[in-house]
Simulated assay, not measured.
Amino acid sequence: MKLQYHVIDTPFKDTFTISGGRSKSSQPALIVSLSLGPLTGWGEAPAISYYDVTVEKMVREIKAKKLFIEKFALTDPERYWHYLHHLLPEHPFLVCALDMACWDLYGQMNRTPVYQLMGSTWQNTPLTDYTIGLDAIDKMAAKIKAMPWPVYKIKLGAADDLAMLRALRQVTDSPFRVDVNGGWTYEKALEMLPRLAELGVELVEQPMARAKTDWDLEQMQALYNASPLPLIADESCVRLSDMKGIEKCFHGINIKLTKCSGITPARVLIREAREREMKVMMGSMNETVIGSAAIAQFLPQLDYVDMDGPLLLAAPGGTGLTIEAGKVSVSGAPGLGVRPGPLPDQPM
């Protein structure tokens, strides 16, 4: 296989802010490709500062390991993922991008869309939400008015969360999904959840920070037992080892391909969640069409999805994937079925 990579930095339509005051005006990412003969598979790894993931670090790893990444004889994407997992153990985002590209290439080699390779048919696909980042309440309301949508994801974790949600409820009847990014204490979560239920909230992602002590874990379990709404683990469930006992704290998990390191491990996480009779959501890290197409392959297997990156960014970054009124459509072409837009030259 031949490996190439491109560094991109796509502006957001609006500054994107989550709890903790974490804001960004653009989304840097690494686009990778794996080619074999006339076929090329594509993958994407966004750079996320609070996970200490930068394009510079990923490029350094590619330069150091390029020959090893290329030399693998592709017969099975899962075998390639295990190879990459051991080759790049400290770089799950980069492994994810290469895993995406591998599945895309393998699907093209077999003239089959990836979702069919995973045994799915394109039916019963959930609607994607549209995210409203933290901002002044009037600006958040204006964004909802400007983007009528069947379901919204509302970022919370500010001092005026309840007033904010009540104001937003005045401008739309669409269901809300609330994402706190671990921004509440146990006491605030216990107070807020019943009120959110009254305001048409469908679910709550990561109300409290990931447990670090036994006491944190006990509080999560107590909140789970008291909650009138489904609680979905995000930061608390990144990889397979996090699944132990997760069903005692959450009703479902939100899988991020980048954080779990790709399509291959995400399939395992879904199986583990289903065995625990948990709901499965898949989320995004503001990927362009390339990374979003990998998420889309899982849609027939999901209960909820948050894959609005191409809508939040100033440019979708490719073709072959469309999102209209929450409905996600794929091209049906082999592999991921997408192609990137114009890309900058590969860095030296």
Rank of each mutant, 00 (worst) to 15 (best):
K2T: 04
L3D: 12
Y5P: 04
H6D: 06
V7N: 00
D9C: 04
T10K: 01
P11Q: 05
P11H: 05
T15K: 06
T17F: 05
I18N: 01
G20Q: 10
G21P: 11
R22C: 08
S23L: 12
S25I: 03
Q27N: 06
P28R: 03
V32Q: 12
L34W: 09
G37N: 12
G37S: 13
I48E: 04
Y51G: 02
V53E: 15
V55P: 01
R60F: 00
E61H: 09
F68L: 15
I69A: 11
F72G: 10
A73L: 15
D76V: 04
E78M: 05
E78C: 03
H85G: 03
H86V: 02
L87Q: 06
E90C: 07
E90M: 10
V95N: 02
C96L: 12
D99V: 15
A101T: 15
W103R: 06
D104H: 09
L105R: 08
M109P: 00
R111Y: 07
R111P: 00
V114L: 12
Y115T: 02
G119L: 11
W122P: 00
Q123R: 04
T128V: 09
T128Y: 04
D129C: 07
I137C: 01
K139D: 14
A141L: 00
A141I: 03
A142E: 06
K145W: 03
P148E: 11
P150V: 04
V151Q: 09
G157P: 08
G157H: 10
A159E: 14
L162P: 00
R166P: 02
R166W: 05
A167Y: 02
Q170A: 08
T172R: 00
D173R: 03
P175H: 09
V180Y: 10
V180T: 06
W184N: 08
W184S: 10
K188D: 14
L190W: 10
M192W: 15
L193T: 08
R195T: 13
Q206K: 08
A209P: 06
D214L: 11
W215P: 00
M220K: 07
L223K: 04
L229F: 13
L231H: 08
I232V: 15
D234A: 06
S236C: 09
C237Q: 08
S241W: 13
M243V: 05
K244P: 02
G245K: 07
I246R: 00
F250A: 11
H251Q: 14
I253E: 13
T258L: 12
C260R: 01
S261I: 04
G262E: 12
V268Y: 15
V268S: 13
L269K: 01
I270N: 01
R271K: 15
R271V: 02
M278R: 04
M281R: 06
G283A: 14
M285Q: 09
E287D: 13
E287Y: 04
V289D: 05
V289N: 05
A293V: 05
I295L: 15
A296I: 05
L302P: 02
L302T: 06
Y304N: 08
G309T: 03
G309A: 07
G309D: 12
L312F: 02
A315P: 03
P316Y: 12
P316Q: 14
G320R: 03
L321H: 06
I323S: 08
E324G: 00
S329D: 09
V330S: 04
P334Y: 01
G335W: 01
P340N: 14
G341T: 07
L343N: 05
P347H: 10
P347G: 12
P347A: 14
